[in-house]
C-alpha cells in the first residue's frame, strides 16, 4: 500500500479555508441530510453545546471510538511500512501545524456565536476535528478514497461536529 505525502499536504492546505463548526446548532439542510446519511444508519441532531458536551462524554460512545482508533493505527502502520516512520510523521505533522491555531479559533468563534465562552469545550472540539482531519489525510494518502474517515472529516468541513456514535445512531451538532 503506497503512502502519498502530497495528498496529506493537500489536506493540510485545505484546513485554513473550511467553515469549521459554522453550522453547529442549525437544522440540517436537505443536502446535509443526504451527505450525512452515508455515515450511519441514523443521524440525530444535537441542538446545542451543553448537550454536545454530555453526548461526547457518554461512555457508550467508546466502542465506536475505539474501533476508529484501531483502524487509524492500522492505516498508520500501512503508511509507515510503505514510506518509513520519519516520512509519515513529517507529512502528518503538517496537519497538526496547520490545524493548531485554526481549529481552536473556529471552535471558540462558534461557541461565542452561541453566547458561550468555554476554553475546555473549545479545546475538545478542536481536538476532535484535528483528529478527524489527521485520520482522513492518513486514509486518503494510503489510497483509501472512500474510507469512512474521509466522510467524517467532510462532515466537519461543512461546519458540523460528529460527536459520538452509539449503536446505530450518530449524534451530530
Amino acid at each position: 500500500m503506497p503512502f502519498d505525502a502530497a495528498v496529506v499536504a493537500q489536506h493540510a492546505r485545505a484546513i485554513e479555508t473550511a467553515p469549521w463548526f459554522a453550522a453547529t446548532g442549525l437544522p440540517f439542510s436537505d443536502d446535509e441530510r443526504r451527505a450525512l446519511a452515508e455515515l450511519a444508519p441514523r443521524i440525530a441532531r444535537v441542538g446545542g453545546w451543553a448537550q454536545a458536551r454530555a453526548v461526547a462524554d457518554d461512555a457508550r460512545a467508546n466502542a465506536a471510538y475505539d474501533a476508529d482508533a484501531r483502524e487509524a493505527a492500522a492505516l498508520k502502520a500501512q503508511a509507515e511500512s510503505a514510506a518509513g516512520s520519519p516520512a509519515v510523521l513529517r507529512a502528518l505533522s503538517a496537519v497538526v501545524d496547520e490545524g493548531l491555531p485554526v481549529f481552536f479559533g473556529c471552535a471558540e468563534a462558534a461557541l461565542a456565536r452561541a453566547g458561550l465562552h468555554d476554553e475546555e469545550l473549545s479545546r475538545v472540539a478542536a481536538g476532535a476535528v484535528g483528529e478527524a482531519v489527521y485520520r482522513a489525510a492518513l486514509a486518503a494518502a494510503t489510497a483509501h478514497p472512500a474510507h469512512r474517515f474521509i466522510g467524517v472529516a467532510a462532515a466537519y468541513a461543512i461546519g458540523r461536529w460528529p460527536l459520538a456514535r452509539i449503536d446505530d445512531v450518530l449524534y451530530m451538532l
Binding site: 460512545a61 505533522s93 479545546r123
Partner: peptide, 26 residues
C-alpha cells in the same frame, strides 16, 4: 494518554493537549 481517557470528550481534550505540547516543541 488518549487511549486511557474515559470518554471521547476526554480523549479529544487530551488529543488537543498533545497537539499543543507538540506546538510548544515547534
Amino acid at each position: 494518554a488518549v487511549a486511557f481517557a474515559p470518554t471521547p470528550y476526554w480523549k479529544w481534550l487530551t488529543c488537543r493537549v498533545a497537539m499543543e505540547e507538540y506546538g510548544h516543541h515547534q
